[in-house]
Every structure is written in C-alpha cells, then in structure tokens.
Design a protein around this nucleic acid. Structure first.
Length: 423
RNA sequence: GGAGAGAUGGCAGAGCGGUCGAAUGCGGCGGUCUUGAAAACCGUUGACUCACAAGGUCCGGGGGUUCGAAUCCCUCUCUCUCCGCCA
C-alpha cells in the first residue's frame, strides 16, 4: 500500500508509474485524491467538535466543584447535543476511511526508474547470464523420467496420499532435498543472514501484511476452522516478525533467512507447466528477507541478487538474470530480478528465484519503521528473494548432470549428500 | 476441553469517573564531573494525524453507560496458573 501523501504531493509520478506497470484503472488516482480530501475535511470537522466537548466537559467539572449546578446542567445539554453530531461524523469518517483504504490497496507499487517498459514476459530484459549448456548427447531424459529411473520421487504415491502436486521424495531423492536445504541455509548464514524457523500457518493479519490478502486469497490454502492460512512463501511469516515494530537504526539492516515448505493452490495451471517438478502444490524453498534503511535498499537489492547468482554458480547451473518489465512485475514490487536456470532436457528456462525491492509498499501496510538520526520514526524498506526454490533446482541438477553411469552431484553438495553420484 | 487470574509507554510497574498521555524504577539520549570509562548528579525520552503550530486520537480489539472513562458494564482476542488430553 502506497502512503497517501504521495498522491497528494505527486500525482503525475503515480500516474506515470501506473502506466509503466500497465495498470488500467488510472481514474482511481483522482478518486483517491478526492476521497482523501473529503476524509480530511470530515476529520477536522470532527476534531473541532471533540475540542469543544472536551473543554465544555472540563468546565462542567469545575462548575460542579463550585456547586454551580444550573450552569453545569445547561452545559450538559449542549455537550449532549454535540455528542450526537460526533457520533454521526464518526460513522461517516469510518466509512470514508474504509473506502480510502480499499482504494489504496488496489494501487500497485510504483516501478523503479530502471524498470523497462513492456507488457509480457518476452519484454523482460536479460541483464546477465552464466554457466553453459551441458552436453547431453549420451542421454537426455527429462527429470520425471530420471526420478522414476533412480526412484527418487514418487508422484503417484503423493497423489494417493494427498493429491496431485504433492510428491513423495524417497531415499536418495529425500536426501538430496535435505542436502540442498542445508547447503542453502548455511550459505545464507555465511552471508550474514540470521536463520529462523517460522510457523507454516499464519493468521489473517499476517497474510494481509505481506499482501496475500485480499487479492491473492484463492492462491492460499485456508484452514477455516481456525482461520489460518498455509504460507505460500516464508516471506509471509518472516516479514511479519517486524510488523508494527519500530527498529532502532543501529539494528539495520535486518537480514533473515528461513527454510519452509510453501503451499500454493495454483488453480488454473495445466499442461507442461505442471509436469514433474515444474509446478507443485507443496514445495520447499529457502528465503532471504531484508529490512533496510531507505537510502540503502537498491544497493541491498544488488547485493542480494549477487548472493543468489553466486549460489547458482556454485551449483554449476546455467542461468540468466532478468530485470522484469513493468507489465510482468508483481503488484507489490518496485524492481524485480528473476533468476532462471536452464533445464537442458526439457530445453526451457525455469524460474528459481525472484529478488525484489518493495520499498515502503509492504512496510507502510505493516508499519515497519525505524528511528532515524532525528529520533523520528520513518518507514523502512523491505526486500526479499528466494535462495532458492528447490524443485526446479533439483529438476535441473538431475537433468543437466545425467550421464550413462548415473547423476553426478555438484562438488558443493557432496558434504551434505554424502556421495558423488546417484546411481 | 474445564476452572481461575490478567492485558497500561522499549521493559518493569502504579493509577479515588474529571486537574492522566498517564506516577515510579530500569533502559535510551544529552550534559556536569573524569586523562578516558564507570559511579554519582542534572536534564530529556511513546505513537498517529498534522505545517515537528493549534487542535484531535491512542492505556489488547470492538461496543455501551456518562456532560466526562485507563478507571464502570458487555463482548471478542490473547497471555498466565491449575486440571484433563497429548508428540
């Protein structure tokens, strides 16, 4: 949610940003500004009334103390009258505040100046690439064949136990999964991130804080009996740790990492997108989140991107880094880098990480602030990224490292996996 | 799940229905003293709205009584203690 003062002070900037983001309902901006004006008018009217009630009530107290009953009674009648008006105004004010809020949450974040114009994924800008395509002339099986061949993952068994999109990792498959999680977490800890193990279900306020609610409600699993939501990403519990907190400036930057499963309903997905490990209802991910000083957030974004990129280099995967265009960015992001790895047997790029700067969009809604030098509370910036999403990494590792004698495990994972080859 | 107690500023902890945005202690910040630090002493120190003015709002959330509520009533949520169940 953008701070309202931006609309009052810089309407043109907002409209330009919305256009870049390919947002259609531009008329909302004017609506917001006029509703805000109405709101402020009502507010001052109500404040003035409250001021007169307050002072009259004080007078009544003094009159009573002096035993001046008649005057006191007269004042009481007057205040009583004012009070009815206040109630009316308060109701109107509450309505208009809700209206304003509901309008504000419909406005996406403003894109950063470096965000390219564009509407579709094809218009994203490739900023860097690394690694090389492996030679698979000897054998070129997609990962769903490899997981069957080496009995690493049983998709049908998951369907039996739960439903499609809930694979069962078995034996060396389970072990590789655990190796990846440990490797990623340790790598992040070495990078200065503090490890957390958060709840996998969150309450409504948390889902709301990071923006899953109200617009992405259908994407989450909902435990209705207790009104909890299964987290679609660790970003939700992690960022909410600091909801409604005022952090001292010395504590910045806050760097957090967590491994969690992620649960997504993925309604409407189909075809090759959901084959094998490409898209699941439950998958594992290690996440990094930072809360930083506003002056530092773009520096931090580059740092986080470099952090993720190095991880892909360590795994020896072919990758590319995309700067998302306005139309393909998420609602809440100001600038996003997507990381894709090349799946050599499927011959397609798979997204494995998305690193974003949200500026104040999340922190404004969650009231995550810090005390600056002048001892004044101001909104911090929040960022997050995956490091990394596991299923597609596993898919690429299996496919790209396959050989007639088995699947070779990258050097960095061997201490965690315990051996050099799956066979 | 049953019974009871509680929810106040960064923390701890007061608060007869009016003079309470709230005592006091700790912590934080500034200063005196000191070569420096500690101790001691002095001062200062919540948030929101808003033009850092005035005014207004906030004592877990919501509602009510009253001219006036942190203080009384209702309700919800959460926490703690005891019992039950349990990895």
């Amino acid at each position: 949610m953008l701070p309202i003062h931006l609309f009052r002070q810089n309407k043109e900037l907002i409209v330009d940003g919305l256009k870049k983001k390919n947002f259609k309902e531009l008329e909302l901006v004017d609506t917001i500004i006029s509703v805000d004006e109405k709101r402020r008018h009502l507010q001052s009217e109500s404040d003035n009334l409250a001021a007169s009630i307050n002072s009259a009530s004080k007078n009544i107290g003094q009159l009573m103390a002096k035993g001046n009953k008649e005057e006191a009674e007269a004042l009481k009648a007057e205040v009583s009258n004012h009070r009815d008006k206040t109630k009316l105004l308060a109701a109107q004010l509450a309505d208009i505040e809700t209206e304003l809020h509901d309008l504000l949450v419909r406005i996406p974040n403003m894109p950063h100046s470096s965000v390219p114009f564009g509407k579709t994924p094809e218009e994203n800008e490739v900023v860097r690439q690394g690694g090389s395509t492996p030679d698979l002339s000897a054998q070129k099986l997609p990962h769903w064949d490899l997981t069957a061949k080496y009995k690493l993952i049983d998709f049908e068994l998951g369907t039996k136990i739960t439903g499609s999109g809930f694979p069962v990792y078995i034996d060396q498959g389970a072990r590789l999964q655990r190796a990846l999680i440990s490797f990623f977490l340790n790598y992040n800890i070495d990078g200065g991130y503090k490890e957390y193990y958060p709840p996998y279900m969150v309450n409504e306020a948390s889902a709301y804080g990071t923006g899953q609610l109200p617009d992405k409600e259908g994407q989450m699993y909902h435990a209705t009996a207790d009104n909890f939501y299964l987290i679609p990403t660790a970003e939700v519990p992690l960022t909410n740790i600091f909801r409604d907190e005022i952090i001292s400036e010395q504590e910045l930057p806050v760097k957090m990492t967590a491994y969690t499963p992620c649960f997504r309903r993925e309604a409407g997905s189909y075809g090759k997108d959901v084959r094998g490990l490409n898209r699941l209802h439950q998958f594992d991910k290690v996440e990094i989140v930072q809360i930083v000083h506003p002056d530092k957030s773009y520096e931090t974004l580059e740092e986080m991107a470099a952090h993720v990129e190095h991880l892909l280099q360590l795994l020896g995967l072919q990758y590319r880094v995309l700067r998302l265009c306005g139309g393909d960015m998420s609602f809440t992001s100001a600038l996003t880098y997507d990381f894709e790895v090349y799946s050599a047997a499927q011959e397609r790029w798979l997204e494995v990480s998305s690193v974003s700067n949200f500026e104040v969009y999340q922190t404004n809604r969650m009231k995550i602030r810090f005390k600056d030098g002048g001892n004044k509370a101001q909104l911090a910036h929040s960022l997050n990224g995956s490091s990394l999403a596991l299923p597609r990494i596993m898919a690429c590792l299996l496919e790209n490292n396959q050989a007639p004698e088995g699947i070779h495990i990258p050097e960095v994972l061997r201490p965690y996996f315990g051996k050099a080859i799956i066979n």
